[in-house]
Design a protein around this nucleic acid. Structure first.
Length: 416
RNA sequence: GGAGAGAUGGCCGAGUGGUCGAAGGCGCAGCAUUGGAAAUGCUGUGUAGGGGUAACUCUACCGGGGGUUCGAAUCCCCCUCUCUCCGCCA
């Protein structure tokens, strides 16, 4: 949510960021609604003041009762109008995107993202490489057919040593983050509209959400929703910040409208699994923790031996709630290219204003916290391991750091 | 699923029609005391919004929504949530 004072005093700033994002929003109309609402509200308050004053006189002045009754009628008419305007105002404010960091690259699609650096050595192969779909079937560790049979196309099973590898990766990642100062959570996998609105997923990503019938609940698209929502309507102590939370959860997304995109295998699915990083911090620190979350992501990929590149995400690929975003794209040998595995957004006070997450310092200074939302790992990292660590027969070398957890070094290919 | 109790400020908790934005406590801040601290004492301390250069002032808010009344934290109705007991259950 954008501070309504900015709408009032510097609407050109909002127009500018909408324009840069290519969003067609009538900011001026919103300014007018706000103005009208404020005038009406002022009138309401004047009448209320008069009413309050007169009611105090009622004990010894019977005429006052009659006057108050008249005021009440006038008041209810104006209040009715004000309520309508307030709703329009709230709806309009809910659709305003966050401001943009000045450094965000211009552009409309992911090809416009700016590469910051490349790390790791891209593996070379003396044989014909397979993609994860082929490897998954060969090794009997990914089952998309039965996923579709039991649930729907876009759902899948991890199985056997593949499932072991996933479990190990998620567990290991959580441990690494705990070692880096994060507190571990297990969260609800459903959340109500208020929470989804507050985190910015509504109204902007309404078509991505799996709602539950006859309930004010939807399956979470990410545990960001439940972790950030955790502190809704709370006043945090300044000295407790930053609060760094992590959790593992399934993530549900309808992915409507994305069928055209490269989606062989389980790269883009209706349910995936993610270890998330969330930071609540003071406004002046959000840039620092944004970079720290990025460092955590890079640390994990380096330990796992996965080559990657970091990109500075462009305006069009950023998402309305985001102020600045770094993606990491890992190298996938089967795809022979870099594809998104993590995404790390500084949301500034966009979510905290919607959710009412504030902090108070000992000296009484108050403000809205900033939030950082960053992926740690997802199933896609497992896919990268499969594709990059394959041998000619299709067997997979397990990354060293995960070997103690899975209890084997290789997922062996079946004998012919 | 059945029965009952409850929701008040950063937290706990009193308050059953006007003098209540709300006692008291905790917490927090300042001052005093101290070599320093603890303890103690005194003072201050809700949130959001409007108006004013400012001192200040007005409005709203006691889970949410509606109603009664000149006037509602308090009375009435609806909803949501929480807790306790019973049943069922991973």
């Amino acid at each position: 949510m954008i501070d309504i004072k900015i709408l009032r005093e510097n609407p050109e700033l909002i127009e500018e960021s909408c324009k840069r994002r290519g969003m067609d929003i009538d900011v001026q109309k919103l300014v007018d609604i706000e103005k009208e609402y404020r005038a009406l509200n002022q009138k309401v308050q004047e009448l209320q003041a008069e009413r309050n004053k007169l009611s105090k006189e009622c004990k010894d002045n019977p005429d006052a009762r009659v006057q108050v009754k008249e005021i009440k009628i006038e008041l209810s008419e104006i209040e009715e109008k004000a309520t309508v305007l307030k709703k329009d105002l709230d709806d309009g404010m809910g659709w305003l995107p966050n401001f943009l960091a000045p450094e965000v690259p211009d552009g409309y699609v992911d090809e416009d993202n700016k590469e910051i650096r490349k790390e790791g050595v891209v593996p070379s192969f003396s044989f014909e490489r397979k993609d994860h779909q082929e490897l998954g079937e060969l090794l009997d560790i990914i089952d998309t057919k039965r996923g579709a049979k039991v649930a729907q196309a876009g759902f899948y099973y991890w199985k056997g040593k593949g499932a072991q590898l996933c479990s190990a990766l998620f567990f290991w990642t959580q441990q690494q983050l705990v070692n880096r100062g994060f507190e571990l959570f297990m969260t609800p996998c459903a959340a109500k509209e208020k929470t989804l609105f507050g985190t910015g997923y509504l109204p902007f990503f309404a078509d991505q959400t799996y709602g539950l019938e006859n309930e004010d609940l939807a399956l979470i698209g990410t545990s960001e929703q439940t972790l950030v929502g955790y502190h809704a309507d709370e006043m945090l102590k300044g000295e407790d910040l930053p609060l760094s939370y992590t959790s593992y959860s399934p993530c549900f997304r309808t992915e409507s409208g994305s069928y055209g995109k490269a989606s062989r295998g389980i790269f883009r699915v209706h349910q995936f699994h993610k270890v998330e990083q969330i930071v609540f911090c003071k406004p002046e620190d959000s840039h620092k923790y944004h970079l720290q979350c990025l460092d955590n992501e890079e640390y994990l990929l380096k330990k796992l031996g996965i080559p990657y590149r970091v990109v500075d995400v462009c305006v069009g690929d950023l998402g309305a709630p985001g102020y600045r975003k770094y993606d990491i794209e890992a190298y996938f040998a089967g795809f022979d290219g870099y594809r998104e595995v993590t995404s790390n957004t500084n949301l500034t006070d966009f979510q905290s204003r919607r959710l009412g997450i504030r902090y108070k310092d000992k000296d009484g200074k108050k403000g809205f916290v900033h939030t950082i939302s960053a992926t740690a790992v997802t199933d896609r990292v497992v896919i990268a391991i499969l594709e990059n660590n394959q041998k000619e027969d299709g067997s997979i070398i397990i990354p060293e750091v995960l070997r103690p957890l899975v209890g084997f070094d290789v997922i062996e290919a079946p004998k012919k």
